[in-house]
Amino acid sequence: MSTIKPVNQKAWWLVLPVVVCVAFSAVLPLMTVVNYSLQDIISPERRVFVGTEWFAAAMRDEELHSALWRQLTFSLAVLTVEIPLGIMLALSMPAKGWKASAVLVVVALSLLIPWNVVGTIWQIFGRADIGLLGAMLQKMGFDYNYTGNATHAWLTVLVMDVWHWTPLVALLCYAGLRSIPDAYYQAARIDGASRFAVFRYIQLPKMRGVLMIAVLLRFMDSFMIYTEPFVLTGGGPGNATTFLSEYLTQKAVGQFDVGPAAAFSLIYFLIILLLCFILYNWMQRVGTADKEGAGHE
């Protein structure tokens, strides 16, 4: 089978419906956002062209900066917890048999729960008066209260995200691990390699590709997190858990600051675009590396 796809420009006709669909719901709005971002809109009839003023304002907005820092800290915290935990989980998951499928289903469970219900679950679970987690922490002597204490709220959102998304990392790593031929392990056993050596020189290199994808996916997804903290804490207390999406929504819908919100949207979009580009190229690279690897065996 040849791996090079035949060139056929008529294929554009097959893609056309998707292009029309997505253009309607993505390109038109994006153009509108650009328009908004350059004007002060008092009403549809009364609007003033203000140039780059909103962008300048957004770039110097202290609240935005702190939201951005909060977001970055959160995303990095998510990565530092979820990636090692996911790897450990993937390593401990059984490889074969009914146990493997059962564990797989249980682990994947939290990924399939609607995001707002994830928020609800933790809202209930964490309450000090009615929730198991909250009550247990209270018993242990912590004055735990995620609705009042900023640090607790932040930690609760983090734990919730770990609960929700670590399985994704684990599943990706698990898929990577399954692609290692048994012969590698046998060779390692003959050489008397330690457990750590097996991990470091056999398992980790094989997982490198999927791991990078996991890192980027988690980073991007946590970067646009909205539903779960909104349900859990509503961005509070104060603005301890007001991440970028939440901040943008407050600006756009709450205060109806169309211009600044639009400028902010575009900046947000540019960040996402860059991350996306890195992710896409990395996935392409992993894809081709896999194919080449398969060719050698």
Partner: peptide
């Protein structure tokens, strides 16, 4: 396309 509140510079850009 009124709702898109077009301005000349943006139109030129696109």
């Amino acid at each position: 396309f009124d709702w898109m509140v077009w301005t000349t510079p943006v139109a030129v850009f696109f």
